[in-house]
Computed example of a mutant assay.
Amino acid sequence: MRRARNRRSKSPPLVFLVLLVLGLLLIGYIDQTLREIHAADGSVVLVRDGDSLAIDRAELRLYGIDAPELRQTCADAKDEPWRCGEAAKSALSQIVSRGGLRCSPRVRDRFGREVATCRVNGLDDVGAAMLRAGFAVVFGTAPDGDYQSAETAARVAKRGIWQGGFMPPAEWRHQHPRPDGGHD
């Protein structure tokens, strides 16, 4: 007696693969839509890193602070590496997601970005909030003494990058230039 051949392929049917891909695309779209942040005027805000934003494609840097670069790592209290650059981006995203982002441009930097002080609902200064959270250091001439005291409070409390060792972001950029010559 002849045994019937199993005509089932060992690979999943094409319909299943198509449905899987469509499902993953839908999940990505929903996730992006839910995470979309808007400025007070309704403009879409993208958080680039811990001190840079794009508002409707206009690049903006927060005045008076310097946050770890996106690819930068720091050391925690046990001297273990952690992704402080990604954590700084996440902290800025959480602050900006409070809503009502309003920025006041002050100058342009050498990359053509507006350098601005920004506020959100419940916070008068996003830069000072990043310093207090320990995800930035004072950069250049800060707007007032509040910036230095916010950095000092984070350092004393060992918040964010102050929990262990870190390389100042400007020094890290100098030692890790981007291959494309761009800026972080």
Rank of each mutant, 00 (worst) to 15 (best):
Lys10Leu: 12
Ser11Asp: 09
Ser11Phe: 12
Pro12Gln: 10
Pro12Asp: 09
Pro12Ser: 11
Pro13Gln: 15
Pro13Val: 14
Pro13Leu: 12
Leu14Cys: 08
Leu14His: 06
Val15Phe: 11
Phe16His: 13
Val18Ser: 08
Leu19Lys: 08
Leu19Gln: 08
Leu19Val: 11
Leu19Tyr: 07
Leu20Phe: 12
Leu20Ser: 05
Leu20Pro: 02
Leu20Ile: 04
Val21Trp: 09
Val21Lys: 02
Leu22Trp: 01
Gly23Glu: 04
Leu24Lys: 00
Leu24Asn: 03
Leu25Asp: 00
Leu25Asn: 01
Leu25Phe: 06
Leu25Gly: 05
Leu25Met: 03
Leu26Glu: 07
Leu26Ala: 14
Leu26Arg: 09
Leu26Ser: 08
Leu26Tyr: 04
Ile27Asn: 02
Ile27Leu: 12
Gly28Phe: 03
Gly28Ile: 00
Tyr29Asn: 02
Tyr29Gly: 01
Tyr29Gln: 03
Ile30Pro: 01
Ile30Asp: 02
Ile30Gln: 05
Asp31His: 13
Asp31Met: 14
Gln32Val: 00
Gln32Ala: 10
Leu34Met: 04
Leu34Glu: 07
Leu34Lys: 12
Leu34Gly: 04
Arg35Leu: 12
Arg35Trp: 01
Arg35His: 12
Glu36Ser: 11
Ile37Leu: 14
His38Phe: 11
Ala39Phe: 07
Ala39Leu: 04
Ala39Pro: 07
Ala39Asp: 09
Ala40Leu: 04
Ala40Arg: 12
Asp41His: 09
Asp41Thr: 06
Gly42Ala: 03
Gly42Tyr: 03
Gly42Arg: 08
